[in-house]
């Protein structure tokens, strides 16, 4: 049964990673109502900021993680201030936002390639990571961190959204931006804060993905997929649904290959997405 334990562990680790990525994505979607294609590459900038701070500047790990996440937050806010906020003021259709975000995605990815090269870098040298044995499954120290941080980020986000004034404002915005405006909410400022927090979560996710595997400029697309698929399955903009779907996605992807060859891993995941889009397009927790 060793393989069963390992598959459960792999699924939970993947689910935790997807949870972090999907939370930030969902938060931004909830406030802005468009699919932000630049989300993945904003996450990648966090990984690169960490890489730069530890390798070139020589800062220790923890401050670098915090600075890396903050950097992603700033990049996210900049995309909002420079691109999305002006578009909002012009009241353009959501599809224009999506295309603009695709432009930001390509531009930021190109900048990463120019500054850091297109190579794949590992953030942690091998042999420095401890491996723990849990009921026959191997789980590394980094993976424990990923699971811990996923739990902490989701917990914190739920508390903030449920019990603070800012949370109420964000939830009101998610329901209806126009009504929010009428009630006197400074929507532009609130969306800016949401971009900062969501992008910071993305950056944290980018750093953790980098710890677990490595970083390269094109990683943004995979991160976007890993963030967007669970949010669509969970009901886009719905945080709890996103978390449930992140784990469902992780389990289906990892257990699917128990039965069929592992080269079909991605096909299984997208098969699940297609099924949901056909039979339950509003998602697990979505409102009709």
């Amino acid at each position: 049964m060793e393989i069963f334990a390992q598959l459960v562990a792999n699924s939970v680790i993947a689910g935790a990673t997807y949870t972090i990525l999907t939370l930030g994505f969902n938060l931004i979607y909830g406030a802005t109502r468009f699919t932000n294609m630049a989300y993945g590459v904003v996450a990648a900038t966090g990984g690169y900021a960490f890489f730069f701070l530890t390798r070139t500047v020589g800062l220790p790990m923890i401050p670098s993680i915090i600075a890396g996440a903050l950097f992603s937050g700033v990049v996210g806010v900049l995309t909002d201030r420079l691109i999305f906020s002006p578009l909002r003021k012009k009241n353009v259709r959501p599809s224009v936002h999506v295309i603009a975000s695709l432009g930001a995605f390509v531009a930021i990815q190109a900048l990463l390639s120019i500054f850091f090269g297109a190579e794949f870098w590992t953030l942690l040298p091998s042999g420095t990571v401890r491996v723990f044995d849990v009921a026959g499954a191997s789980v590394t120290e980094v993976q424990w961190w990923i699971m811990g941080i996923a739990a902490a980020v989701s917990g914190l986000l739920f508390v903030v959204l449920r019990f603070t004034l800012f949370g109420k404002v964000v939830r009101a915005l998610s329901d209806d931006e126009e009504v929010g405006k009428m009630l006197g909410i400074n929507t532009d400022r609130t969306i800016g804060i949401v971009f900062f927090i969501g992008s910071m979560i993305a950056g944290l996710g980018g750093i953790l993905v980098g710890f677990d595997t490595g970083i390269q400029p094109t990683m943004g697309l995979f991160i976007l997929i890993e963030a967007a698929v669970p949010s669509i399955i969970g009901g886009i903009g719905n945080l709890a649904g996103g978390v449930i779907a992140a784990f469902l996605f992780g389990f289906v992807e990892n257990f699917g290959i128990w039965f069929i060859a592992s080269q079909w891993k991605a096909a299984i995941a997208f098969g699940l997405l297609t099924l949901f889009l056909i039979f339950k397009p509003e998602g697990i927790m979505g409102k009709k």
């Binding site: 598959l7 792999n10 990683m219 995979f222 992807e253 990892n254 592992s262 080269q263 891993k265």
Partner: peptide
Amino acid sequence: ADEGYDQAARDLRTQLTKVKA
């Protein structure tokens, strides 16, 4: 065991888990 992975894949844990088993 005979397991393939996408050239762009950076997570081979599932393949390697099957190999280990």
